[in-house]
């Protein structure tokens, strides 16, 4: 191992990991934030949501490009590499019941959870809309229909919370990865900031979910 290492100082793993980290924040994290804010407008009712929110977006220039390169591909890469990273984990939660260790584990588990959530969520919204224009035209109604089912609602709430945790905790580890926070104190303080951020995002998301309920 050591000698192989001396021969080639292959930085690809480093670069991929940094790319993965970066994408988690930009654009994925940014998208999530925007998306939750967007959906929180559900409380203004179907009319507002369908015309002011969804339609405005759908009228955007190069929408397909944006969806593809700003959302889909980064997410796919982040998810694929994230799965690879998750495969390296050998967490022992009962042996080391420290908060950070639990978060480390949850970061990975939530990633897998988000993936499952996204397959269903995007499948039943954006993708379904591709061949069912009705869905596209009244996304509010569509969502309302789905979310009225307590099971679906629970599933969404879970997906939302996992995503928000994943983003908030991801931010705090990102700060270490990139070298923003070094001392234990800085890491702790920034952890509080991330927690606050997560709580706000979580609240916005839940608020949005509730807004769809009849």
């Amino acid at each position: 191992m050591g000698s192989a290492m001396n021969a080639t100082l292959d930085p690809s793993q480093f670069l991929l990991r940094r790319l993965h980290s970066l994408l988690g924040l930009l654009p994925i994290g940014a998208f999530l934030t925007f998306h939750l804010w967007e959906n929180s407008q559900s409380r203004f009712g179907a009319e507002h949501y369908n015309t002011r929110v969804v339609a405005t977006l759908q009228e955007m220039n190069y929408l397909v490009f944006v969806e593809l390169f700003v959302i889909a591909l980064p997410l796919l890469f982040h998810a694929a590499y994230g799965l690879a990273i998750t495969g390296q984990m050998r967490a022992e939660l009962s042996r080391y019941p420290y908060a950070r260790n639990r978060f480390y584990w949850l970061q990975r588990i939530s990633g897998v959870g988000i993936l499952v959530f996204l397959l269903l969520h995007v499948g039943t919204t954006r993708l379904q809309g591709l061949w069912q224009p009705a869905v596209r035209d009244d996304l509010y109604g569509h969502m309302q229909g789905m979310l009225s089912d307590p099971l679906v609602f629970g599933f969404y709430a879970l997906g939302l919370l996992l995503s928000v945790f994943h983003l908030a905790n991801g931010l705090s580890t990102m700060a270490i990865v990139w070298g923003l926070t070094t001392s234990a104190r800085a890491q702790r303080l920034f952890g509080y900031v991330c927690t606050a951020l997560g709580l706000v995002l979580g609240a916005i998301g839940i608020h949005g979910l509730l807004g769809f309920l009849p």
């Binding site: 930085p11 793993q13 420290y98």
Partner: peptide, 22 residues
């Protein structure tokens, strides 16, 4: 730095932070 930027280096840390606890 180049050595720890290579395979098996710094980026394999996942910030579990058990290390510092034990």
């Amino acid at each position: 730095l180049h050595r720890i930027m290579a395979t098996g280096g710094l980026s394999d840390c996942g910030n579990a932070q058990n290390c510092v606890r034990v």
